[in-house]
Nucleic acid binder design. Structure first.
Length: 689
DNA sequence: CTTGCTCTAGTTAGG
DNA sequence: CTAGAGCAAG
């Protein structure tokens, strides 16, 4: 297999062929970045580098999987699978598992997920008496968790944190929690996600033997989406690279949109400060979008000051102007979007999977979702609260765990809680104590609850029926070998379905919520089927998938998207592209988001206007053929119709490349604002009747 | 312990 | 306007 580089442009080829020394590849949107990375790996292999000596780090499992898939096609499965290819976290975890002593972890260490971390922090807050002590002392757990995470990734120790100057009570609370939190982690023999990176960095710094071992093993490093790295990740890269500095990082500073998560754009902006011999290659040819889209994108991003100067040079000629759509109000904006998509699909024959609606914040999709439903169009939603993350689905999942993994006390507690059955905090305390004394799980304690004194009769009755329902479901499960029907029975039996339907405000909401549970049951069925085909069903894997990766169950991106319009937050849209893109709600306060200009005290990181602009840029550059940017002149906000200012980013669009479509004016609904609003009002009335 | 009322806040997300 | 949380009453 000889590597064919003829399909690459000179810059791409240079990026592939520069294998020695530090290299920064600035890959503009749609510049063929993935091809460069895969070709580069194949080239290294052809030069005789052993696959085990090549490391490619990414941020998401999805990105890592996609890279592995492409490489499998080029090199065959065996070679591709022996590359070290994965997320920072997964590679870090693998290193720690290989040398637990060096990294200071037990042989079998646990990894806490977000929920566990919240639980720990809540417990520490309680210990410190900082929680639930009057209204003024109530903290948003997330804000504290975030601060601790940011400190860890900046190598700020608990002691360091105590010594910092604090502007807010949040910083103080977080500093107080940090130390005890770390102690508890250690006591549990567990690490959190941050440790998977930070511990690698510190150990490689302090332990010469470990450093020598890993530097010898990982001879060629590649990092994708480098603009998203934080301080700890930078240090992992530097310390793995050693003096050899065979580091190739690929990224785009103009698409750095995770500063609020601790990512440092400085890592990519100052790459040659950290790696003095660095060579920089810019990939500026854009193979994705028509010229007007590229021109708009260039004009917008040029307004940012801290960036590597570069352009998108469109390789596709022609194309429509970008359309800016102005609606009189939010409702009409949504209707216009629904109508436009409907026409595209039903009259112009555009494939649904070629259309995306992008927005700044997840809630904006509600209105669009409703309209697509009205038009009978299929869609999928990226970002925002994932399906499996919704309360009902988590509840159902807890019942599944209670049924097949009864030792999971966390799940038992959750299941016990919904629907309410007269069992409260006090009773659970009694149960836990009983369990602790006898070394039982919470579930076992529940089954033997009649042995426990001090349980009120109402709670006792609740526990008895819970216990009976669980036992019945378990028997059914062991007899049938499948969890689907028993779980369904259990959920009905404990009245979860009734509860979910009753809790929801409207009929539509109730159905939507229960659909989440149905979806879980279907996913479980598919999972069992796959497992049986392979010989065994490992439910633990199912829980992992549910916990960690929403897309796993859907298979690959293309399958999941087929036949569906995509609704996505701008953050989740990064890296994707569609022929037709609608970028909606482009108003001040939404984009840029108002929290950038008016931060709250719980915000650990101040918002950044340049980052907001990059977000807008990411949105524009997702479009291949056509781009619509929409906004509303007024919007219903907290019950009142308020005027909205157009996003300042719209001012940056070059007039020659855009066309403005004012819905009120162009549809001859009237020439002045009052008339169009009256029209809109009447239209709303008609809709209501 | 549960229910129902009142208050408050309301970005973005991955392992 | 809503969802989630806190709090007082049954």
């Amino acid at each position: 297999m000889a590597l064919d580089l003829s399909g690459l442009n000179p810059d791409q080829r240079a990026a592939v062929l520069t294998t020695e020394g530090p290299l920064l590849v600035l890959a503009g949107a749609g510049s063929g970045k993935t091809r460069v990375i895969t070709h580069r790996v194949v080239y290294l292999l052809e030069r005789g580098v052993a696959p085990g000596n090549i490391v490619a780090l990414s941020f998401t499992n999805k990105a890592a999987d996609e890279m592995r898939e492409r490489l499998q096609k080029m090199t065959g499965k065996a070679v591709a699978d022996s590359l070290v290819l994965g997320t920072f976290h997964s590679v870090g975890a693998a290193m720690m598992r290989e040398q637990p002593d060096h990294f200071g972890v037990p042989k079998k260490f646990g990894i806490l997920d977000q929920g566990d971390v919240y639980g720990l922090v809540r417990a520490v807050l309680r210990d410190l008496g900082l929680h639930g002590q009057g209204a003024e002392r109530r903290f948003d757990l997330g804000a504290i968790v975030q601060r601790i995470s940011l400190w860890k990734n900046d190598f700020v120790s608990p002691a360091d944190a105590q010594g910092l100057y604090f502007e807010t009570e949040y910083d103080e609370a977080a500093a107080a929690v940090y130390g005890p939190y770390e102690e508890r982690l250690r006591a549990l023999g567990a690490v959190d996600f941050d440790d998977l990176i930070v511990r690698i960095a510190t150990t490689l710094e302090e332990n010469a033997a470990a450093r020598a071992y890993w530097q010898d093993k990982f001879r060629y490093l590649m990092v994708d989406e480098y603009q998203d790295t934080n301080r700890a990740q930078l240090e992992v890269v530097r310390r793995l690279a050693g003096e050899r500095e065979n580091v190739c990082v690929v990224g785009d500073d103009d698409q750095a949109i995770y500063g609020w998560r601790g990512a440092k754009v400085a890592n990519i902006l100052g790459f040659d400060m950290y790696f003095k011999r660095a060579r920089t290659i810019k990939l500026e040819q854009n193979y994705r979008s028509y010229a007007p889209i590229c021109t708009c994108a260039n004009a917008v991003i040029a307004r940012n000051t801290s960036r590597h100067e570069k352009q998108l040079v469109p390789q596709r000629r022609g194309g429509d102007k970008v359309t800016v759509v102005v609606a009189p109000d939010g409702d009409q904006e949504a209707r216009w979007i629904g109508r436009t998509i409907f026409r595209e699909v039903r009259e112009n024959g555009t494939k649904p999977e070629d259309i995306a609606v992008l927005y700044r914040s997840a809630k904006q999709c509600d209105a669009i979702e409703a309209l697509l439903q009205e038009h009978g169009l299929a869609y999928r939603i990226l970002g925002g609260q994932a399906f499996y993350d919704k309360k009902q689905v988590k509840d159902a999942l807890a019942y599944l765990k209670v049924m097949i993994a009864p030792k999971d006390d966390l799940a038992t507690r959750r299941a016990l809680d919904v629907p309410s059955r007269g069992v409260g905090l006090k009773t659970i305390e009694h149960l836990s104590e009983f369990a602790r004394h006898r070394n039982l799980s919470l579930a076992e304690a529940i089954h033997r609850s009649d042995e426990i004194a001090d349980i009120p009769s109402r709670a006792a009755a609740g526990l008895r029926s819970f216990s009976a329902a669980v036992k019945r479901a378990q028997a059914h499960f062991y007899a049938s070998g499948s969890a689907v029907a028993p779980l369904q029975g259990l959920l009905e039996g404990v009245g979860l379905r009734e509860y979910v339907l009753k809790e929801a405000g409207s009929e539509a909401a109730a159905t939507a919520r229960w659909d989440g549970v149905v979806w879980l049951l279907e996913a479980l069925g598919r999972f069992e089927q796959r497992g049986r085909a392979r010989g065994q069903v490992r439910y633990n894997d199912f829980f992992q998938v549910m916990n960690a990766n929403k897309d796993k169950d859907e298979g690959d991106e293309e399958d999941a998207a087929r036949g569906k319009i995509t609704l996505s937050t701008l953050h989740s849209a990064k890296g994707l592209e569609w022929p037709l893109v609608l970028l909606i709600g482009c108003e001040e306060g939404v984009m840029p988001h108002k929290r950038v200009s008016a931060p709250r005290i719980s915000d650990a990181i101040a918002g950044d206007l340049e980052e907001e602009r990059r977000l807008f840029y990411v949105g524009i550059t997702r479009a291949r053929d056509r781009l619509f940017i929409t906004r509303a002149a007024t919007r219903l906000e907290r019950g009142a119709q308020v005027p909205r200012k157009p996003s300042r980013f719209l001012d940056d669009l070059p007039e020659a490349e855009i066309r403005v479509h004012d819905i009120a004016r162009d549809e001859r609904l009237g020439h002045d604002n009052i008339a169009s609003m009256a029209e809109a009002f009447l239209a709303n009335l008609a809709k209501g009747l």
